[in-house]
Design a protein around this nucleic acid. Structure first.
Lengths: 200, 200
DNA sequence: CGGCCTTTTGCACGATCGTATAATAACGAC
DNA sequence: GTCGTTATTATACGATCGTGCAAAAGGCCG
């Protein structure tokens, strides 16, 4: 029987292809429409190859979550660091980066939403989610403390700020027609100012 | 062959049973684990009965979304109306009701999250979502205007408030160990005060 | 070029999906 | 009681799910 032409690629290249295909499928079709076959079709490989590089589709999705998460965290952290030494400028830069490319991308937000929908039922996803949000708050709390808040004030402020950012992401993803990323960014800045001048 | 005993029930009773079973399945197993068979097993009926009362599982899920949505809206509206004539008290009551029973129920939040995950891929769910959020904002804007905001100020304020409430719901559902509904409520009140005294 | 190891393919398998449908049980009318 | 209507069950069907596996193909060393 005739076989499709195939080229051998490095393990890193194939793994990354499959990870990116998984993120794309999650964004386009949601968690329900993300199957071994759709992922592999998107990556341009046969369905059997997935198991050669990953333990299974659940493992691939978890690895993809970790990958997306790490990239988002790195982007936000770099935005904060690039803002110079002034504490409030660093905090604002960290927060507003959430609403600019490459974070405010519709596909990325849709992927993120698909992960949220898996947290409750997949323990592996829940574990990554827990780590991610702990890391996010641990990044945020020193920035808030640097602006004059005590440790006891910084923790709830970090939670409140995270909630608003997530809520804005959620609604930008579900219905982008209601408001723009720029407006979302302004709301988040407003929340930062409010939390700094009168802590919870 | 022996058949399981069955009793004839009224159409309303059966429909409501299936709707509640759907909400319960969505909460427990997520959208991916909610199938015709799991729903009907939960409702205590055979799988074939679903199609006798609904056009199919997609229709049943959409009807369930509408049902849950209507109950939440009614609960919040009643909380606002029960708070008396004073505008700010009504607004605060409306918002804080989101973090008290029966709204702050883990199962309800989990169901809600499952619906969110379906908005991007199911047009029927997206339509209901759009209506719901428009209705929610149209409920919120007069309350904000009653507290002294102009129409132009009330719209972004309603969006910003909705985003924080949704973000707090999201994180309460994904990881209830981080903060309590009472803390979430206090954050929302804080956001209301901030938006009223210095509008966006 | 020939041999070898690993990537890659293509398909088979059992399970589960949503739906269609024929058989059956339950209830009301008479 | 008997019949007729219909709610309900049980099962069948085709499609799709994730995975297992044998064979084919690609690349490299000799």
């Amino acid at each position: 029987m005739a076989r499709a032409a195939s080229t051998r690629e490095s393990a890193d290249f194939r793994r990354q292809s499959l990870i990116e295909a998984t993120a794309a499928c999650l964004a386009e079709h949601g968690a329900a429409g993300t199957s071994v076959r759709t992922i592999c079709a998107r990556a341009g490989v046969s369905p059997g190859l997935l198991r050669h590089y990953f333990d299974g589709i659940d493992d691939l999705i978890a690895v993809t979550y970790r990958d997306v998460t790490d990239r988002v965290s790195a982007t936000l952290r770099e935005a904060g660091e690039a803002a110079g030494p002034e504490p409030r400028a660093r905090l604002i830069a960290f927060v507003t980066a959430s609403f600019r490319p490459p974070i405010a991308d519709p596909a990325l937000l849709a992927t993120w939403l698909a992960f949220w929908s898996l947290v409750k039922t997949r323990p592996a996803i829940a574990a990554i989610h827990g780590e991610t949000y702990r890391g996010y708050r641990e990044e945020l709390e020193p920035l808030l403390a640097g602006c004059g808040l005590t440790i006891a004030q910084a923790r709830p402020a970090a939670i409140a700020l995270t909630a608003l950012v997530d809520g804005l992401w959620l609604e930008l993803s579900l219905d982008p027609s209601t408001f723009t990323p720029a407006e979302a960014s302004a709301m988040a800045v407003r929340w930062v100012d409010s939390l700094l001048e009168r802590p919870l």
